[in-house]
Amino acid sequence: MAAQPWTWLRQVHGAEVVTVTEPGGQAGAEADAAVTSVPGAVLAVTTADCVPVVLLADDGVGVVHAGWRGLVAGVVRAAVTALADLGHPPTRAVIGPCIRAARYEFGTNDLEGVAARWGDTVRATTPAGTPALDMVAGVRAALAEAGVTDVDDGGLCTAADAERFWSFRARGETGRVATIAWLEETPG
């Protein structure tokens, strides 16, 4: 898929972002997002139920692993800022497969904390009527706050689609999907 060394992260549900300056740079770093403006530098995050986000800019790209703790900590804004600091503010974002609100039953106390930061749009309920978290609404709010309003979302749910995705929340599975992004190298 991409011949250069990949930058994999040791994800910790925080807001740390690494800037990758060479293919494979920062591999193994403890972070939840990576950005680059280097052609051929492949960035990767892994997710099951958390939200993978790809940030797209002219001559720059970033990937974000947004779990609820990282979302509250500010990982989305930190990644947008890091890419902008490279001179490439993102103009678009793509949201990948993640657990959707209808399947994400969530504790009331933690839901209050997320809603305190990202507003009531993150509040949802499951079909059974229990409190749920709408992570995608939170990510969209974080992107908008950071100035990124062009957002693509295929609506894929890891909990609902056991044929294609893993879900720890729904099925206790520990597998992950890799979300990768890179800038093409221009021929010589």
Rank of each mutant, 00 (worst) to 15 (best):
T121S: 14
C157W: 00
R77Q: 09
R92Y: 05
E105C: 13
V80H: 11
D85V: 06
A170Q: 08
G154V: 01
T179G: 09
V136Q: 06
R77G: 05
P90H: 06
W118A: 08
T126K: 06
E173Y: 01
V136I: 10
V177A: 06
D152T: 12
A162K: 01
L156P: 09
A101E: 15
P131H: 09
R100G: 00
D134M: 08
A73T: 13
T91A: 14
E173N: 01
A159I: 05
P97S: 02
V80I: 15
W182D: 10
A124C: 02
A178H: 13
V136A: 10
L133F: 04
G87C: 09
G74F: 05
V80Q: 10
A146I: 03
C157T: 03
S167F: 00
T125K: 03
R117K: 07
G74C: 05
P97F: 01
A170R: 06
C157F: 03
D153S: 04
R100F: 03
A141K: 10
P90K: 03
T186R: 09
D161N: 12
P131W: 07
D134W: 08
T108M: 14
A160Y: 01
R123M: 11
G107E: 14
P89N: 01
G87W: 10
A128S: 13
A115E: 07
W182C: 13
L143V: 05
T179Y: 09
V94L: 15
W166M: 02
V122Q: 00
W118M: 07
T149C: 00
G138V: 03
V122M: 02
A178R: 12
V151R: 07
L133Q: 04
A79Y: 01
V75D: 09
A141Q: 11
A124I: 01
T158G: 09
V80R: 06
V72C: 12
T186K: 07
